[in-house]
């Protein structure tokens, strides 16, 4: 059974440096479309990637595009990675080094807001930046998500 919320909780408790982006960020803003994975933009340092690995170590994490390969990062791999796609017992976590339409991690961090969750603080891509990111992706479901986000933005303002 998938549990995206638990995946997020583990990232926060492991003190991973990340910003929640993608569909789950849209959900947090109020979008009612269901998303099937957790997308994060994170710092691609060896220390941070090892924290991600530690967060999921008991969930049989594998590389999503090569499920035969368990997640066992080495310092050499950490230097070369730009994205990391992980599949766990509780669902998928896609770790991205940059977000199209927004930029690299530092820029994404600047365009994020801090939200307090029951177990700690979480940085989530702000609604304007999320709209830009989704517009840059421009897939059918991103276009629908943008519609929802724009309505939510208008509701918040009114």
């Amino acid at each position: 059974m998938q549990n995206l919320s638990e995946l997020l909780r583990r990232l926060i408790l492991a003190e991973v440096e990340f910003v929640l982006v993608g569909g789950f960020a849209a959900v947090s803003h109020g979008v009612t479309l269901v998303t099937r994975d957790v997308d994060i933009c994170c710092r691609f340092s060896e220390a941070n990637l090892m924290r991600i690995q530690e967060a999921f170590k008991d969930l049989h994490p594998v590389h999503r595009l090569r499920p035969d390969l368990p997640l066992q990062l080495t310092p050499e791999q950490c230097v070369t990675l730009k994205n990391l796609y992980v599949k766990t017992d509780l669902g998928i976590v896609d770790c991205l080094g940059e977000i199209l339409g927004v930029g690299g991690f530092e820029k994404v961090l600047k365009d994020s807001i801090e939200v307090t969750l029951p177990f700690g603080k979480c940085r989530i891509l702000a609604i304007d930046a999320l709209i830009r990111a989704k517009e840059a992706m421009n897939r059918d479901h991103d276009i629908i998500t943008v519609k929802h986000l724009k309505v939510i933005k208008a509701q918040i303002k009114s």
Partner: peptide, 8 residues
């Protein structure tokens, strides 16, 4: 936001 994530 947390309740929305749980609902998802």
């Amino acid at each position: 936001p947390w309740e929305r994530m749980l609902a998802n």
